[in-house]
Structures are given as structure tokens and as C-alpha cells.
Amino acid sequence: MAKKKGCLGCSLPVVILVAIVVLVPLVLGLLAGPLGKTFGVTWLPGWMAPSLPHPQLPAEVICHIFGFSVTNSMIATWITVVVLLVLALLITRKPKLIPGRAQSAAESILGYIYNLCVNTAGEKDGRKFFPLVATIFLFILFNALLALIPGFGSIHYHTAEGNMELLRAANTDLNTPLALALITFCTVEFMGFKRLGLGYLKKFITWGDFGRAVGRIFKGKFDIMALLSGFIMGIVGLLELVGEFIRIISLTFRLFGNMLAGEIILLVIAYVVPYYIPTVFYGLEAFFAVIQALVFGVLTIVYISLAVSSHGSEEHHKTA
């Protein structure tokens, strides 16, 4: 491009205008916020400064229905459920062989998850558990994405206990990740017992080698290596058992921590630099939402496929 007057291909007045539009809110926001206050800027109007966020862990109770406490995260969950159902009905109302845009999008998302399930757990199990994995994915994703809609966290509701947010991202309420993690855990254990019967427990109770080594001592053959390796095998089984239960905690707090941290980062960034910069973090949060949803779904199907195949693979491992 030929060198012209002005810069960046624009004439000087345009550049100045853009700079004003971009920089003035940025700088004023920064000055009106906590940083400005720290450096003694008090002449800016109070409405420009965002209010100090005070995130809290428990979801706030909005009202009581028949003695049942309805929290703001429950309301958000219900909205997510309704939104997902409406979308599903709209898309599948008239499924066409040659899909429209919405149907195409839904099909590619579900098709992606379906392929993931089938590739991980095989054709039969993948097909069987696809609905669970897809629902986990969509539920987490839409919970997180809905919370990113502007205004989601800013609608306030007045109760006897004070002024509180009407909606709160369900993933940031520990009950939701815990419920999902327990569903995954129960499905995994149920499938393990259903497929392998009591043999499923062989993965956890691995004291057989140790017992045989001890038995041989009574026959007069003292083999310290066999005793030791048997003991280690037993401990490994115990660790396996503990690990099985730790999955609940890891699944729960991975989702909870990521989502809550994202929410808090958005609040803090919006408090410190109210203009432009939060947009970047919104994009980041949308990305994290997809990642967390995918991770939870993938882990679910991986755990299931491990549970239904662990026995066989262990046998194979022993003979190998």
C-alpha cells in the first residue's frame, strides 16, 4: 500500500476518533475503578465505577415453595433445561434428510459426541451411553454459556434476607457438579457389576498373590519376592478402590473450580478494567465452557469403558 497521510491506512481524523472511542472509556474506566481510587482519583462520577463484587460459595435462596428452598442456581438450571428442550423440539420438529442450518449444527455436535463415545467404548456401548454423555455435555455447556449472557448475573431480587442475584450459573453451585459426578460414578459402578458380576471386585481386591505366598510359607517355602509383590498388588488394588471414589471428588471439583474461577475472574476483571478487557475474558470463558463440558463427558465414557473392560484386560495383562 502506498504511503499516505495519516496512519494505518486511515486519515488522521479517523485515527484520532477511533483512539478516542477506544481509549477514553478504557482509561476512564480504569481511573474510576479501584486502581484510580488507590491513586487518589476521586473527581469521576460514582456511576462509572462498577460495584465491588462479593462472590460467595453457597447458592442463595430466592424463595421457599412448600418448605423447599429454591436457590438462584436452581432457577438457572431450569432455564437451561427449558432452553435445551425448546431447541431440541425446534430442531427435531421436522427433521429433514437434507438438513437446514440448525439441524446441521445440532447433528454435527451430536455426531461429534457420538463418534467420541463409539471410538472410546466401542459400537454397542458407545451407542448405549451416548445419551448420557451428550446430556452431560449439553447440560454443562449450556449452563456455562447461559451464564455468559450479559445481564445474567445482574438481575437482582429482593428478599427478606437481602438483595441477591436472581440467577447464578448452575455449574458454580457445588450441588450441580456433585450431582453429575455421582450420576457418572453410579453409572460406572453399575455397569461394572452388571457386565462382570462380582468379578468386577477383582480389580479392587487383589490380595490373592499375597495369600498364596503366605500359604507357601506354611509349606516351608519362604519366598520374600513373591510375598512382597503380592503385598504390593494388594496395595495397588486398595489404591484402585480409593481412586474410584476420588473420581467423584475430582469430577466435582474440576468442574466447580473451573466454572467458579471463571465467574470470579470475569467479575474481578469487570471491576478493575470495566471496558473492553472483559470481552477477551468472555471469549476465554466460552472456550473453557466447551472444554469443561467435553472433559466431563469424555471422562464419563472413558470411566464406563474402563469399568466394563477392566477384568478382561487385566486377565490379558496377566497372561501376557
Binding site: 428442550l85 431440541a88 427433521p95 439441524q103 447433528e107 457420538y114 451428550a134 446430556t135
Partner: peptide, 13 residues
């Protein structure tokens, strides 16, 4: 979702 989304969409696919 199983009833209204996955079944029709999977059938369609």
C-alpha cells in the same frame, strides 16, 4: 432429550 433430540436425530443420521 433422549426422547425428543437424540432419537430423532440419530435416526435421521
Amino acid at each position: 432429550l433422549r426422547l425428543f433430540a437424540y432419537k430423532p436425530i440419530m435416526r435421521m443420521l
